[in-house]
């Protein structure tokens, strides 16, 4: 239903776009398609951006595949996914996340290496602005997104006070490249009740409903192929048994050839399921067309 609404909205935005024309690959400047966020959408590592995935323009179709690993003191998060960008207007994404509790699983009474999994299905519609080319206007590129998430450990989620294993986030993002300064900034508002991105379900004994959360990034182009930056993302704190903190990272993204981007970050997810100070290395490889 949400999906259908997005498509209808897209057709209203661009009356001419339903016409079939020759499509064409490529056409974005290096690093202006962003990288794959943890939820699979185009963004930074932690934050969703208003940019549309893939190296395509209004004349084509693009996409990407990515694999990400986050190595934390007590956990390991692995995600694999992909996204398709249609005419730089609509993005459809999917990611499968695997959260390995390693030895923490024993302490939590779940067993060594207990795995939480989650699938995230995303759709993003660019509604206004051009982050890259409209350098004489302050209007940022603006996009709305929905991310439907399905966690796989419903019984445990309920046992710790979670309300549901499924949930849907709604996002509003604004992204602008200030090219004269080589600076990219993003601010995103996310309505969510996800516990640790949704891996521990949605809603909790402390707070069941969605709340407004913020995520933002700032990135500086250092060379034509290298961007460094930082991100910040607040999260709800719904579950009584374990506090949840904001997450942040500092990252470097390197364009490798025409089709690959390697992202390395030092990320801090705060306390996760009672284990404090979950800070570690975030590594992600993205291939795009």
């Amino acid at each position: 239903m949400l999906f259908r609404l997005l498509i209808v909205a897209a057709c209203l935005t661009l009356p001419g776009m339903a016409q079939a024309t020759d499509t064409r690959a490529g056409g974005k400047l290096v690093l202006t398609e962003g990288v794959s966020s943890v939820e699979g959408s185009a963004g930074g590592g932690l934050a969703n951006w208003a940019l549309i995935a893939g190296n395509e323009t209004e004349d084509g179709i693009g996409g990407n595949l990515h694999a990400t690993e986050v190595l934390l003191p007590d956990y390991k998060l692995t995600s694999v996914g992909g996204a398709v960008g249609w005419r730089d207007r609509i993005e459809i994404s999917y990611v499968h996340q695997v959260f390995d509790t390693r030895t923490a699983g024993v302490a939590l009474g779940l067993g060594q290496g207990f795995i939480f999994g989650e699938d995230v299905f995303g759709a993003k519609l660019r509604v206004a602005g051009d982050a890259v080319w409209d350098q004489d206007r302050w209007l940022p590129q603006i996009a709305v997104s929905v991310q439907h998430k399905r966690a796989n450990r419903a019984a445990i989620i309920r046992a710790v006070g979670g309300k549901s294993a499924d949930g849907t986030d709604f996002l509003l993002s604004a992204t602008k490249l200030v090219l004269a300064k080589g600076l990219l900034v993003d601010a995103t508002l996310r309505l969510t009740n996800g516990n640790q991105f949704g891996l521990f379900g949605f809603g909790g004994d402390r707070q069941a409903a969605r709340t407004a959360q913020f995520e933002g990034s700032a990135a500086l182009m250092v060379t034509p192929r290298l961007v460094i930056g930082g991100e910040y993302r607040t999260k709800p704190d719904n579950l009584g048994f374990a506090r949840e903190n904001a997450a942040y990272d500092v990252f470097a993204a390197l364009a490798v050839g025409h089709h690959a981007t390697l992202t390395a970050a030092y990320t801090d997810l705060g306390s996760v399921a009672t284990f404090a100070r979950q800070r570690g290395l975030f590594l992600s490889l993205q291939g795009s067309f």
Binding site: L29, V132, W133, Q135, R137, L179
Partner: peptide, 30 residues
Amino acid sequence: AALVEHLQAAMQTEHIAFTAQNRLLAKLAP
């Protein structure tokens, strides 16, 4: 985008400072 790539490559070859490259590109982009 292809033309801009070639402009960037030409500016690199001429060793134009990266900040100056981006200031010119920002003027051309609109």
